[in-house]
């Protein structure tokens, strides 16, 4: 059974990038989480302190404790809580990487419709990742 009979080259490229980026993502979130809860690195807010407030609404919790959100952690990469959060940010970016990879593949195949559709999809995801739709935090 030839694989390309059932999935075209663009789809196969997406699948390959997805496999590696998502596998890395799973390893990253587990490593990040263990770094945080085992306190292998110092954290601005300890797990016990977060647990005291996790019954509050997200907006209220952020008034009480300085847990990372959005992109506000970028300058504090040496913290355990930040590393754990960054791993989730990475996992939430995997789809964008995969879509970005297939744009040149669609261009190469001269598939105008899907080049535009994928470009628009990546643009939407980039905008929301930048905080454009949620006013940042």
């Amino acid at each position: 059974m030839k694989q390309e009979l059932h999935a075209n080259r663009v789809q196969l490229s997406y699948a390959t990038v997805l496999f590696w980026t998502s596998t890395l993502g799973i390893i990253f979130i587990i490593a990040g989480y263990l770094t945080y809860v085992l306190q292998l690195l110092p954290s601005a807010v300890s797990p016990a302190e977060v647990a005291l407030h996790w019954h509050l609404r997200a907006a209220e919790l952020h008034k009480v404790v300085a847990v990372p959100s959005g992109w506000d952690w970028l300058t504090q990469l040496g913290r355990g809580d930040v590393i754990s959060y960054a791993s989730i940010v990475y996992l939430s970016s995997v789809t964008m990487f995969c879509l970005a990879v297939i744009i040149p593949a669609f261009v190469k195949e001269k598939d105008f419709i899907y080049t535009v559709l994928t470009l628009l999809q990546v643009t939407v995801l980039l905008f929301v990742a930048a905080g454009a739709f949620s006013g940042g935090h």
Binding site: S69, G70, I88, L99, V128, S134, H137
Partner: peptide, 22 residues
């Protein structure tokens, strides 16, 4: 794709805690 889009709103609104998600 859809959950990636929505997840970013939750990330920016501070509604993701690694202690609960992971």
């Amino acid at each position: 794709i859809n959950d990636t889009a929505a997840a970013w709103v939750y990330l920016h609104k501070g509604a993701v805690l690694p202690l609960i998600a992971v």
